[in-house]
């Protein structure tokens, strides 16, 4: 059964990059995103991320996870946003824009709460952070085989114990998804479905999935531990020798990315571009 959130070999620009340039590109974008709050700049990064996602042929259905994640976090952001009703918090955008009140409600005990434009932009920025983060992460997962991470870590002389733990963790995630998919299908065939909006009842209905999954994970981990011991894992210290090949295209991607990030950071630090 094919699973979600797993590398898939494709012939795309991103797939064909060396792990060094691919990671440089994606991590640089994630780095920039973490500093930006202005939705205009984030929208540009969103467009670039979406283009990368599309060109790498990452399955669209992976993005379904955004619905619960954004839905859940949006409430939290709106609550925090309503706490930021002081326009002085927003020093980059013109005061008359950020101080505009979008809505105001009276709550018992708390009193009047309002959402100003500055806070709304902040909320929008937070949502964009999540969406871009998910797009880039999925692009990375879909375009990067586990070998690439390991080779890179070895090149960076990361201790093999850490490399192993990372490898097992990366192997573990798709395996767990596979287990989860099988369990879900098995229970659906017994009539299982979440047909309630009551969160307590819904949580109870998740037990038929969670209990077998927990049991399977424990068994899997136990077997993994035995298997690694049988391969003398942890017996001594080991050193690896790894070579990573870079093409002209890889160097170009790295150079363009680093130049773009440097320019963006310059404008961010010196001219506050990207902040609210």
């Amino acid at each position: 059964m094919p699973t979600w959130y797993e590398y898939s070999p494709e012939d795309t620009f991103l797939h064909n990059l060396s792990p060094v340039s691919r990671l440089t590109l994606i991590f640089s974008m994630l780095f920039l995103v973490s500093f930006y709050y202005d939705p205009r700049y984030l929208t540009v990064l969103l467009a670039i991320s979406a283009a990368m996602y599309h060109s790498a042929k990452v399955p669209k259905k992976w993005l379904l996870i955004l619905i619960p994640v954004v839905g859940w976090r949006l409430g939290e952001f709106l609550l925090v946003g309503m706490g930021q009703y002081n326009p002085e918090l927003f020093r980059v955008w013109p005061r008359e824009i950020v101080s505009r009140v979008i809505f105001e409600v009276h709550l018992p005990v708390i009193g009047d709460v309002r959402m100003i434009m500055g806070a709304l932009l902040w909320v929008l920025g937070q949502v964009l952070h999540i969406v871009i983060g998910v797009l880039l992460t999925f692009t990375l997962i879909y375009t990067t085989p586990l070998n690439d991470y390991v080779r890179l870590m070895r090149k960076l002389r990361v201790p093999p114990q850490i490399t192993y733990v990372m490898t097992v963790a990366l192997k573990f995630v798709p395996d767990i998804f596979r287990m989860y998919q099988s369990i879900q299908v098995a229970q659906r065939l017994r009539g299982w479905a979440i047909r309630t909006k009551n969160p307590i009842k819904a949580a109870k209905l998740a037990l038929p999935l969670m209990i077998p999954l927990a049991r399977e994970i424990i068994r899997y981990v136990d077997r993994l531990e035995i298997s690694s011991q049988l391969r003398a894992f942890g017996a001594t210290t080991v050193r690896y020798q790894v070579e990573l090949k870079m093409t002209k295209k890889d160097y170009a991607v790295c150079v363009v990315t680093l130049v773009a990030v440097t320019i963006a950071m310059y404008f961010l630090i010196m001219h506050k571009k990207g902040l609210l």
């Binding site: 287990m179 077998p212 049991r215 399977e216």
Partner: peptide
């Protein structure tokens, strides 16, 4: 028509 997976532990909870 129904289907049973080979590992019964995938459904028992």
């Amino acid at each position: 028509v129904n289907y049973i997976f080979q590992n019964p532990d995938a459904m028992l909870f």
